[in-house]
Every structure is written in structure tokens, then in C-alpha cells.
């Protein structure tokens, strides 16, 4: 038997919003430690990894490990039926071919349940090597979303360049060139407005706007986003899910032909 109850059900709604443009189907791997998802987009350019720790749920029971293959478009449709303040419970029997989502209003006066068929997905998991990143940049998630949206007008790619002076985002195309520089903030009233850079060595990498734009669908999840970069390895874009886990996107760089 698997049962996970989340009073802050809107976190799950936001997680689905962050995934549905990039992935059409994926498996949720459930264990007594929590729920995990790892999947590549269809083009195998990016990888998404989601972790929801058991202790972040208000009730969590997972008697035996199970992998629930789901059509994420369908799951997203169902989660859109939950109100932002609804309590969400996910339930499945062992070896079941369906999953049930229960939405309770905070006053318990409205209860809805939706059943969805599970899929048999033969998904491969990738081993992500432990990496000490050359540069780790933390910035407001809304700022990152704005930068990517603005620069996407100029070209298909964004160059992210991190030095000890700050981080520079650049794009070039037919209409011209755009450059946005962010310096590390000296002092801020609110921690979530800060730009912080931890740098071991300068690093410059080029990434496809299309994917970065899809990653910023997770902006609703967290006030800050963390970008981790090292020469010639995938970029990591991480958003925290409250204090119960994270959504991490890995994006392969563009390389010189």
C-alpha cells in the first residue's frame, strides 16, 4: 500500500507545472524514504530529477517500493482540478494498475477523488556523477526567468559567463546582441533578493534558450534558483520544493562544431 498526504497540496500542483512541458510521461519511484522521478526529455538534451522526501509529507506510507508510470499531461489535468489550498493525497495498492488522487478542501466539506491508469514505462535511469562545480550562482528565480525570456528574443542560445566580477548572460542573432550582467549583491533587505556567486574558476558555457525557458516554469516553486556550472559539463538549474525536496534540471551545453 502506498499513501502520501500533503497538506500544502499546491506544491505538487507546481511541481507538475514545472515538468509537463518538458516530459510527456515519467515514472514516480516510491520508497519509504520518499518519491523520486528522473527522466530525459524526448531529444535527450536535458534530464529532470525530482525529489520529494517522505518527511515533507504530512502522512507517508510505502510498504514496498513501487514505480508508478504516469502520463504527465493527464496527471497535470487532474492536479489542475485541485484548489490551491486543497490537501492532496496520492494512493495506490501494491501492484495496482491505477492511482487515486484525493483532494480535500481545508474545511473537509468538499472531497474529490480522481483515478488514473498507470503505464508500464521501461525507463532507463542515468547515473549523475558527483561534481564540484566551478561556479555556483544563486539568484532570484523571477530574475532568471526574465533574463532568459528577454534574451530568447535575440537568438536560440544564451551564453552564461561567470567571473569573480559577476555573471553575464548574452545572446546574439539577426536583430542584434543582448548582454545582461548581474553583480553579486552587496547587501539586501531580503535574502531571496540576493545574487550570490561562489566561484573556483571562471566558466563560460552556451545553452539552448528553448530548454532554459522550459526550466523557468518552475519559478513558481521557489524564490531563488541555483545555477551550477563547470567547463564542458551540463548546467544544473535547481529549484527547492518548500523544505521537502527539489526539482533539478540538467542541460547539456552547446559545443563548438
Amino acid at each position: 500500500m502506498f499513501e502520501a498526504r500533503l497538506v500544502q497540496g499546491n506544491l505538487l500542483k507546481k511541481v507538475l507545472e514545472s515538468l509537463k512541458d518538458l516530459l510527456t510521461e515519467a515514472s514516480w519511484d516510491c520508497a519509504d524514504t520518499g518519491i523520486q522521478l528522473q527522466a530525459m526529455d524526448n531529444s535527450h538534451v536535458s534530464l529532470v530529477s525530482v525529489q520529494l522526501r517522505a518527511d515533507g509529507f504530512d502522512k507517508f506510507r510505502c510498504d514496498r517500493q513501487l514505480s508508478m508510470g504516469m502520463n504527465l499531461t493527464s496527471m497535470s489535468k487532474i492536479l489542475r482540478c485541485a484548489a490551491n489550498d486543497d490537501i492532496i493525497t496520492i494512493k495506490a495498492q501494491d501492484q495496482a494498475d491505477n492511482v487515486t488522487f484525493v483532494f480535500e478542501s481545508p474545511n473537509q466539506e468538499k472531497v474529490a477523488d480522481y483515478e488514473m491508469k498507470l503505464m508500464n514505462l521501461d525507463q532507463e535511469h542515468l547515473g549523475i556523477p558527483e561534481t564540484d562545480y566551478a561556479a555556483v550562482i544563486k539568484l532570484p528565480a523571477a530574475e532568471f526567468q526574465r533574463i532568459i525570456k528577454d534574451l530568447s528574443q535575440f537568438g536560440e542560445s544564451v551564453v552564461i559567463s561567470c567571473t569573480k566580477e559577476g555573471v553575464k548572460f548574452s545572446a546574439a542573432g539577426d536583430i542584434g546582441v543582448g548582454n545582461i550582467k548581474l553583480a553579486q549583491t552587496a547587501s539586501v533587505d531580503k535574502e531571496e533578493e540576493a545574487v550570490t556567486i561562489e566561484m573556483q574558476e571562471p566558466v563560460t558555457l552556451t545553452f539552448a534558450c528553448r530548454y532554459l525557458n522550459m526550466f523557468t516554469k518552475a519559478t513558481c516553486l521557489a524564490p531563488q534558483v541555483t545555477l551550477s556550472m563547470s567547463p564542458e559539463v551540463p548546467l544544473v538549474v535547481e529549484y527547492k520544493i518548500g523544505d521537502m525536496g527539489h526539482v533539478r534540471y540538467y542541460l547539456a551545453p552547446k559545443i563548438e562544431d
Partner: peptide, 14 residues
């Protein structure tokens, strides 16, 4: 010109 790399060139299949 730059070319898009695949994530599979960096992470191994388990």
C-alpha cells in the same frame, strides 16, 4: 557554429 550535445554524452546509463 555550435552544436547541441546530448545529455547521454555526460551521464551513463545505469
Amino acid at each position: 557554429m555550435s552544436k547541441q550535445a546530448s545529455i547521454l554524452s555526460f551521464f551513463n546509463r545505469r
